[in-house]
Nucleic acid binder design. Structure first.
Lengths: 229, 229
DNA sequence: GTCTATAAGTGGATAGAC
DNA sequence: GTCTATCCACTTATAGAC
């Protein structure tokens, strides 16, 4: 399974606001990274342009040389996330991999792939921004519904469909299996990484606990849908 | 199973801010109900004291004759929710009821009890306030963790424990069963009643869809943990 | 490209007349 | 108990000097 790069680059300036000089691009990137940091800690509305500017080390009016508005910063954060998602492996690869190494090994590898994807701190922060602004920002809500819930459950559904076709699972409804798997993954994410989030604590601890619960859940799913060797 | 009253009264004024006159109490109650309406539609931070006052039909400064601060209004909304929860039936009653009528009937009755509890529009709106402010307001986060997640999973865990004791379920780990049941219930609630919430649409439709998914999930759980008749 | 200064508005909360 | 008037901190965004 492909491992994504932990140090992905941010997208280049495209708008008319920031000039093409080297200094301009670097300031623009600093604004973007600082915004991701602040939004992920305090939420979009709670962070002001002044606060971003102060953290970057410029005056607030200078931000508008690089971004048209506060909203334009958010837009670019979301497109950065999309550019990272496109690195994910295909369904065909995924199901083939499961057939190769067996179901239980596959679920473990899948877990570590997820951790790899999330090992990019920027991606992790963007997930956090999306999660905490889900019910306060219509643009983020639509983004979440389309690019996380909708695409996510589709991928799992097709994955389970392929697994059943390859006789790796019993002939269950793929949509039900997907819903069982996906709902639990979302539940764990929100519980351990958002609700119980503590920036001062050891970041490995929520991972450990979430994974322990996920293992129990996978055993549970396999008890219904698994096929004995 | 006990059905809760759909027209529960709001708690009386207790602070020093509102006097004991009939008119004062009625204005205070109007402020509270209006705040619940507005907070549940737009969120706590997005609604200003001015906006509440305008909707009630008084000036913003008059609010402070009835409540010490905006936060005090929220406090009272949360205590109203707690006063309603205390009406819920006991575990012993619940497990006995399951033994009486059988597991599948019980799950259906449980579903309609939940709908009954949620049939109070005020309770429904308070759930919505809690859900959308979960990651923006520390007081609400703690309230949710304590009074919904923590108490909720405990109740389900003990309920499943009693059911296993009474041989209604196979000897599975009650904590795992609780987590399977509770996580899915939360997932459905957030998906259908918060994420896809549409005040202009038919309110029966999300209920129908959520319940259909819940039925599939219960069948799934019973396939692992159920005991054949 | 960054700055100062400022516009034009929002927010919660208070003082004091009636 | 409600009103008018006001305070002060804070918001996004713009104009124009350098």
């Amino acid at each position: 399974m492909k491992r994504t790069d932990g140090n992905a680059k941010l997208p280049r300036s495209q708008g008319k606001t920031s000039s093409g000089t080297r200094k301009g691009r670097r300031t623009r990137e600093r604004i973007l990274l600082t915004s991701i940091d602040l939004f992920s800690e305090k939420g979009y509305d709670a962070v002001s342009i002044r606060e971003i500017a102060a953290a970057v080390g410029i005056k607030d009016s200078s931000i508008y040389r690089h971004f048209e508005s506060k909203d334009a910063i958010l837009d670019e954060i979301l497109s950065y996330y999309l550019s990272r998602v496109s690195d994910a492996p295909s369904l065909e690869q995924t199901a083939n991999r499961a057939a190769e190494i067996g179901l239980e090994n596959f679920f473990h590898e899948f877990g570590s792939f997820y951790l790899g994807f999330m090992s990019d701190p920027t991606t992790q922060k963007i997930w956090r921004i999306i999660a905490i602004e889900l019910y306060h920002n219509d643009k983020i809500k639509r983004f979440f519904q389309k690019n996380i819930v909708c695409i996510g459950s589709q991928i799992f559904e097709e994955m389970f469909h392929l697994m059943i076709e390859r006789k790796l699972l019993k002939d269950h409804d793929p949509a039900t299996l997907s819903s069982e798997f996906f709902s639990f993954a979302l539940y764990l994410y929100f519980k351990y990484f958002i609700l119980e989030y503590d920036p001062t604590a050891d970041p490995a601890e929520p991972h450990r606990r979430a994974w322990a619960e996920m293992e129990a859940h996978i055993q549970f799913l396999l008890a219904v849908a698994g096929v004995k060797k």
